[in-house]
Design a protein around this nucleic acid. Structure first.
Lengths: 198, 198
DNA sequence: GTCTATAAGGCGATAGAC
DNA sequence: GTCTATCGCCTTATAGAC
């Protein structure tokens, strides 16, 4: 447990506040109270609220995308899928959702620069999932109902919404439906022949 | 084009404002300006902002759930799926998303009564999709990668997120990945045998 | 039912002392 | 770097005239 500078604490609590309540859902006062400083001190580190947002979304995206890029593509497809799902499963059911998912609901208030980071976040995750699904399909180990890219978009969207719904219902296991879909889509399994009973 | 009472206009513009900006994203002033009245007139019809929200979410849920319940279950599964998807396809790419999806991101600020309506909305849609998928599977016309209920949850979540992403990218066709997944999941089609090229 | 006027407090942001 | 003090504006909500 290393000691954090005030700036680091502000950024960390902003990440949490945005994921819990959204950019429009917290104030400088809320943030100041959590960190134990006055609101004017926040303005010293982050002159405007948009500066704070920009820093938070950049940091969040770097962390998650870093995790995704860090997954060894030499692993079996199922192991890659499980590694990918890790942070999603760990988040589900808490009082925070994905920062990008939250901000995507608030696009009307966000500057263009933030929009770009959000879009890049979707693109990277969807591209990674597309590659995984396509390679699993190419190896003939699996049978996809729709093209890899379409399934990747659907799976990633279902994960985002899964966090939202898991929080609403207070039910972490709500994310598992989508996790199962991804795993099943890259797993050879005993894939049933058409007409074979489930 | 029938003339609407002020109350009806307030409700209608509230539906739109929540779907565009969220419950925390608009004020009585915004609403008053759109309808052409003063903010105090809103308080006459809806004493508090929570009253306004309660009326809006109730109305929205009644409309969408009414549409779903109105789909003839005697139709072929694919026709039912297309009828179900209709409002989602019509919404994608505009500046408004599903009101329930929007409010689900703002749960921290919403009263318990609204939470209940949101949950019921998810349950009804998921149950309807589960029935559709299960009946299509039971008829041996299709092969699902995961159980019907899990797929229903994933599909519905992907639709919700699909609206969000379609708006962010300004790309209505973004919803089609999930629409394709649902259609493919209930369509006998020429379902490929394992190993058969896509 | 709708208005004017106003209350009481929250908001992001700034100036200037220390 | 952090503080106190303050600005101007926005917010939901109410009282009372018409």
């Amino acid at each position: 447990m290393t000691t954090q500078s005030v700036r680091e604490q502000l950024l960390e609590h902003t990440l949490l506040l945005v994921r819990q309540r959204g950019f429009n859902g917290f104030s400088y006062r809320d943030l100041a109270e959590r960190v134990g400083v006055k609101t004017s001190s926040i303005h010293y580190h982050f002159p405007s609220k948009e500066d704070l947002l920009q820093a938070a979304v950049t940091e969040y995206s770097a962390r998650i995308c870093g995790h995704v890029r860090g997954i060894d593509t030499g692993l079996p497809a199922e192991a890659q899928a499980r590694a990918y799902l890790e942070p999603w499963l760990a988040t589900a059911g808490g009082d925070a959702i994905c920062l990008v998912g939250m901000l995507s609901a608030e696009t009307a208030f966000l500057p263009e620069g933030v929009h770009r980071i959000l879009k890049d976040f979707y693109r990277l995750n969807e591209a990674w999932l597309t590659r995984l699904l396509a390679s699993a399909q190419a190896a003939r180990r699996t049978l996809l109902p729709i093209p890899p890219q379409a399934l990747a978009q659907a799976v990633f969207g279902a994960l985002q919404s899964g966090l939202v719904v898991a929080r609403l219902f207070g039910a972490p296991e709500r994310i598992e439906a989508t996790a199962t879909l991804l795993i099943a889509s890259v797993t050879p399994s005993r894939s049933r022949a058409p007409g074979e009973p489930a």
